[in-house]
């Protein structure tokens, strides 16, 4: 059986976020930042966060860089999911996203998973593209862990 990947992978949400990404900018005075590279394709992202202490709330998050539609849309969606979350909450979403891209989570069935993640629920059909979607999340995690550079390899 074949799948129609265009409808599955390049849904309108992805095309739109690629065209007009959210939070595509620098954050002057960011408390955390990191560079993420995918050496296989040359993609790179820069993730900025501003974390409010005490309390550890991400009050601003943004990104810049070059990449494919999947990596850009994923970064854009990630920033909208994380803004206003606590660091603990960010960890939970990071884990959920990792499960999702392995095909282990189903946003349609699980009410605890953000609905906006559903556009990536079929990406495990495309092993070569999984890293495109996950680069931003690993870079974000690297920024919070004070790792300056993150690579997918």
């Amino acid at each position: 059986m074949t799948h129609d990947s265009r409808s599955e992978l390049y849904q309108q949400v992805i095309i739109e976020h690629n065209k007009s990404p959210k939070n595509f900018r620098k954050i002057p005075g960011a408390t955390h930042e990191a560079e993420g590279y995918n050496p296989l394709c040359g993609d790179h992202l820069h993730i900025y966060l501003h974390v409010q202490e005490p309390g550890g709330v991400i009050d601003d998050i943004s990104f810049e860089g070059d990449g494919c539609a999947i990596s850009k849309a994923s970064a854009s969606l990630m920033t909208t999911s994380l803004k206003g979350k606590t660091l603990k909450g960010a960890d939970v979403l990071f884990e959920q996203f990792n499960h999702l891209i392995k095909g282990e989570l189903h946003p349609d069935k699980d009410p605890n998973v953000p609905g906006k993640f559903s556009v990536f629920s079929g990406i495990w059909h495309f092993p070569a593209r999984v890293k495109c979607a996950s680069l931003c999340w690993h870079t974000m995690k690297g920024a919070l862990d004070k790792v300056k550079t993150v690579t997918t390899e």
């Binding site: 129609d4 990947s5 265009r6 390049y10 993609d43 494919c68 539609a69 070569a128 593209r129 495109c132």
Partner: peptide
């Protein structure tokens, strides 16, 4: 991006290299 091209032409059965 070339990777998006690669995935989309792969849907049409065409193998090209992107990167």
């Amino acid at each position: 991006h070339p990777h998006d091209i690669g995935t989309l032409v792969n849907d049409e059965g065409i193998a090209i290299r992107t990167g």
